[in-house]
């Protein structure tokens, strides 16, 4: 029988939490091995970054949703960390198979990669709980209603809110989306759709704002390669 919106939202949350039950909020043995295989072990930086971003996220979540919700923010962050580690491990396994390498030192010591991956994980958590919803702005989403988050918030925490919290450029966030979806086949249709909407928003608008790293990349491509003939506009 078709589910009510609240039942569907509750099941989505239950599924997410169930999928993350076996995931720890610390790196797994496999992930530790990948860290140790690096020329420079990134583990301490990873843990330190999570500590810093965890505090920032909880504070901003509390400011946005309500001061009583800082603890809720902490819970969301913890789930986000579990998903972050889970997807990281899956990505590395996939890359190991694809590239036949075990030393991912450059990637795992790239702060932007870790911040992007974490931001994507947090966006998935917030979308599941209805806090990040393009349709309703998060306030009237069945999950948000069912969770009792009925207090009016001062700030909408819908995407791209998370980018500002973790100080991440939209173009860098964009880079992880497809690999994230590929690495976690348990993501449900609604969440994949949400990430796809984020992706489109970035490509159509946010990545083209002043200060985006996209412009530097385009400049490097233009200067690095041979000058190409510009095609005249077709009539």
């Amino acid at each position: 029988p078709p589910q009510t919106p609240i039942r569907a939202a509750m099941n989505s949350i239950k599924q997410l939490r169930g999928d993350l039950t076996s995931s720890g909020d610390q790196p797994s043995t496999n992930l530790d091995t990948y860290f140790k295989n690096c020329t420079v072990d990134p583990k301490q930086d990873v843990l330190k970054r999570l500590e810093t971003l965890g505090q920032a996220f909880s504070q901003r979540f509390g400011q946005a949703v309500g001061p009583r919700c800082i603890v809720l923010g902490r819970q969301r962050f913890t789930l986000g960390v579990k998903l972050y580690y889970k997807v990281m491990e899956a990505m590395l396994k996939s890359e190991e198979k694809r590239l036949s390498v075990q030393n991912f030192s450059k990637l795992l010591n790239d702060s932007t990669f870790h911040t992007s991956l974490l931001a994507c994980a947090l966006e998935v958590i917030m979308a599941t709980y209805g806090e990040s919803s393009f349709k309703t702005g998060g306030y009237n989403h069945p999950a948000a209603t069912a969770a009792g988050g009925g207090d009016a918030a001062d700030t909408n925490v819908c995407f791209p809110w998370i980018l500002d919290v973790v100080n991440l450029a939209a173009f860098d966030f964009y880079k992880v989306i497809e690999s994230f979806i590929k690495a976690d086949p348990t993501l449900n249709k609604e969440i994949v759709k949400h990430l796809e909407t984020c992706e489109n928003l970035i490509m159509e608008r946010i990545a083209w704002r002043t200060g985006s790293p996209l412009f530097e990349l385009l400049k490097q491509e233009h200067e690095g390669g041979a000058a190409e003939q510009v095609e005249p506009p077709a009539s």
Binding site: R98, T112, F113, E178, S179, K182, N188, K189, V192, K193
Partner: peptide, 21 residues
């Protein structure tokens, strides 16, 4: 199941996207 379009080729992955190839 979803209908997300995966655009990356077999020789493209997260390592290339973060300039780590």
């Amino acid at each position: 199941s979803h209908d997300y379009h995966f655009g990356l080729e077999d020789h493209e992955g997260i390592s290339e996207l973060f300039d780590c190839d």
